[in-house]
C-alpha cells in the first residue's frame, strides 16, 4: 500500500514531575516545566514507522496546540514522519475531550485520504485514553485501542491489533479506515535519524491551520465546545515515595498489605 496515509497524533506535555498548581489563580503552572512528547505517543509513532518501513506510505503528524510545540514536533519528522499539521488557534484553547476530538477530526478531514490514525494510549497530562474512540466516532472510522502489536493486510485493507486483556490477550480485526491507540511501552521508539535532521527542520515540512482554515463550527471548538468545566484544582501528593514502615507480626503485616493491595488493584 504505497499510498497508505497514516496520521500520528503527537502531543507535547510538560514533564509530569515539574508541574505545579498556582495557588493564587488555581491554574496549572506549566511555564517553568520542561516539555516532552507524550511518552505513549512515541510508541504510537514507532508503530506507524514500522508499518511504513514494511509497506511504504506516508506519515503525517497531527497536533492541536500552540506554536511553541513546533520544535518538539520536528522530532517526529526526524524519526521518519513526512509532514506536520499543527492546528493552532487561540479559540482552540480550553478544549476538553469532545472539542479536542472534534478539532482533530476536522484536521484529519482536511488532510484528506487518511487510512490509519495512531494515538498514544493516553496522555500523561490527564486526558485519559478517550481521544482515540472519540476521534474515531467523529470520523466514523473503526477503532482498536490499547494495542501492543499491529498487522496490516494491505490488499484486504484491514488491520489486526493485539491487546492485553485481563491475564490474556485478544486480537481484533477491523477494516480501514481506522483509529488505533498504542499501549505505552509496547515497543522501543527509534532514535532520530540525524541524517535527516536538517530536512526535518525545513519550513515547508509543517503546515499550520487556524480555525479559519478548517471547516469548523465555532460552537464545537475550544471552551464553547467543551461540556466539562474544572471547578477546582489541587496539588495532590508528591511523587516521592512514602517510605512508610509496616510493623507487627507477619500476620499483622499481611493484613495491612492486604488492604493496601485491595485499594490499589
Amino acid at each position: 500500500m504505497a499510498n497508505l496515509h497514516m496520521v500520528v497524533c503527537l502531543k507535547v506535555v510538560p514533564k509530569p514531575e515539574e508541574i505545579r498548581v498556582d495557588k493564587k489563580t488555581n491554574r496549572l503552572e506549566r511555564t517553568d516545566a520542561r516539555s516532552e512528547l507524550n511518552p505513549p505517543d512515541m510508541n504510537a509513532m514507532e508503530m506507524a514507522l514500522s508499518i511504513k518501513e514494511r509497506y511504504g506510505g506516508k506519515i503525517s503528524i497531527l497536533t492541536m496546540g500552540p506554536p511553541y510545540f513546533e520544535p518538539l514536533l520536528r522530532v517526529g519528522l526526524a524519526m521518519g514522519a513526512d509532514h506536520i499539521y499543527l492546528l493552532s488557534d487561540r479559540d482552540f484553547g480550553g478544549a476538553d475531550t469532545l472539542a479536542t476530538t472534534y478539532t482533530l477530526a476536522k484536521g484529519v478531514e482536511k488532510i484528506e485520504g487518511v487510512d490509519l490514525i495512531f494515538c498514544g494510549e493516553e496522555s500523561s497530562d490527564g486526558a485519559t485514553g478517550q481521544v482515540p474512540p472519540g476521534l474515531a466516532e467523529w470520523l466514523d472510522f473503526n477503532q482498536i485501542t490499547m494495542i501492543n502489536n499491529i498487522e496490516l493486510a494491505p490488499r484486504k485493507k484491514t488491520i489486526r491489533g493485539r491487546r492485553e486483556i485481563k491475564a490474556g490477550h485478544e486480537i481484533l480485526e477491523v477494516p480501514l479506515p481506522a483509529v488505533v491507540s498504542v499501549a505505552v511501552a509496547s515497543n522501543e521508539p527509534r532514535f532520530m535519524d540525524y541524517r535527516i535532521k536538517d530536512w526535518a527542520f525545513e519550513e515547508e515540512r509543517m503546515t499550520v491551520w487556524s480555525k479559519d482554515d478548517l471547516d469548523v463550527d465555532a460552537e464545537y471548538i475550544g471552551v464553547s465546545g467543551s461540556p466539562t468545566i474544572v471547578s477546582d484544582l489541587a496539588q495532590a501528593a508528591t511523587r516521592e515515595r512514602k517510605r512508610e514502615f509496616l510493623t507487627g507480626t507477619p500476620e499483622e503485616i499481611a493484613d495491612k498489605l492486604k488492604v493496601i493491595l485491595q485499594d490499589a488493584l
Binding site: K15, E18, R34, E36, E188, R190, F191
Partner: peptide
C-alpha cells in the same frame, strides 16, 4: 538497527539530560 535498549538511552539523554531515565529535576 542499533542494539535493543540503546535508543532508549539516547532518548533519555534527550528528554532527561541523563542516560538513566531519571527525572532531571532530581
Amino acid at each position: 538497527k542499533p542494539e535493543e535498549g540503546l535508543p532508549s538511552v539516547l532518548w533519555s539523554v534527550f528528554w532527561n539530560q541523563n542516560p538513566w531515565s531519571q527525572a532531571p529535576s532530581q
